[in-house]
Design a protein around this nucleic acid. Structure first.
Length: 322
DNA sequence: CATCAGGGCCCTG
DNA sequence: CAGGGCCCTGAT
């Protein structure tokens, strides 16, 4: 589908703002609904039934941030869809966050300080909504990065919509209704294994509107956790990512999986990843960052993955199953 | 060739 | 609350 209509909008995030490390997360596995190069990010978005192409361009500075957004669509978008889209984008990219307190408190922190100075205003983001993130979460489970990438690609090719805009070709997610009609057996044939069952069961409450992401955002973190955990195939690891990246709880850090434990051990304690620091000890250590503990870890974590783009980090390579 | 673990989660005992 | 099983893939 070629998206020919274009609407240009200026977005002003709160200052300071770090464009690239907010709009590109090298630890997220690559998927064909997004693309990035320095200063520019493309992505698709399914919003209120519209398949959209989005292009974000950095036009500002850290202290005076400005983003130019091009919205590509097949038809001219009515004002109400456009308005809600802008609100959604500001939410997903956390553009209204006030990080002054965090920066003030930790700019002189031995480990965190240098990264805050390098990237003041870096924030968590999710280009996808809750439903799409759950699909990704399921595809991540118990497999290598390569397999996650290929399973997601297969789903896009089978159920997504290929969009062409700004000379990019990217896939857009499907409506939950689409998967509702597909049997578990048919999904299994796409080699997603036992994840087919989770995918089917997660799909239903979205397809029949039992879960309303916007309503869920208004609930407490505790309520959100309970609702998410009640979904089949969603456990503590997936919930942890969602509470931070989707619902922006900067303090959500209660689960550390084994591979993360190894990386944190090296990163924070310079400890041999094969003899990792106990999870309890790590959690206790992160208490120093209080209500910002996951955000703090995120700064260190992203810094590590950005470094990996440019230099070899042998100990890290060993821990990533590509 | 066979075996095994993987960026989890569910279910059982 | 520990541990087996789950789909498939690719490393050994």
């Amino acid at each position: 589908m070629k998206l020919k209509r274009v609407k240009e909008i200026e977005l002003i995030p709160t200052s300071p703002f770090a464009f690239d490390p907010t709009f590109h997360k090298p630890d997220h596995f690559p998927s064909s609904d997004t693309a990035w190069e320095q200063g520019t990010r493309w992505q698709t978005m399914l919003w209120q039934g519209e398949c959209l192409g989005l292009k974000f361009e950095n036009k500002g500075t850290t202290q005076q941030p400005q983003i130019n957004l091009h919205i590509f669509s097949e038809r001219s978008l009515p004002k109400n869809i456009l308005d809600s889209l802008i609100i959604e984008i500001r939410y997903r990219y956390d553009l209204d966050s006030d990080l002054s307190d965090f920066i003030k408190n930790f700019k002189n922190d031995k480990q965190l300080g240098p990264i805050i100075k390098k990237w003041p205003g870096l924030r968590p983001m999710s280009p996808q909504g809750l439903y799409e993130f759950l699909v990704i979460g399921i595809m991540l489970q118990n497999c290598t990065v390569k397999r996650s990438v290929s399973m997601t690609q297969t789903l896009f090719e089978k159920y997504g919509t290929l969009l062409e805009f700004d000379r990019k070709k990217l896939y857009c997610y499907w409506e939950p209704k689409v998967l509702e009609k597909i049997s578990e057996e048919e999904l299994r044939r796409l080699k997603i294994g036992y994840r087919a069952k989770s995918l089917k069961r997660i799909n239903t409450p979205f397809s029949n509107c039992e879960i309303d992401e916007l309503e869920l955002r208004k609930k407490t973190k505790k309520e959100q956790r309970e609702i998410l955990l009640s979904l089949y195939g969603v456990g503590p690891a997936t919930v942890g990512y969602i509470l931070f990246e989707i619902f922006k709880h900067y303090d959500e850090l209660s689960h550390i999986s084994p591979w993360e434990q190894k990386i944190y051990s090296k990163l924070f304690f310079n400890q041999d990843p094969e003899k990792p620091v106990a999870v309890e000890k790590l959690l206790k250590y992160f208490e120093r960052y209080g209500e910002y503990k996951q955000l703090a870890v995120h700064y260190l974590w992203e810094d590590l993955w950005w470094k990996r783009k440019n230099e070899k980090i042998p100990w890290l390579e060993k821990l990533i199953r590509l």
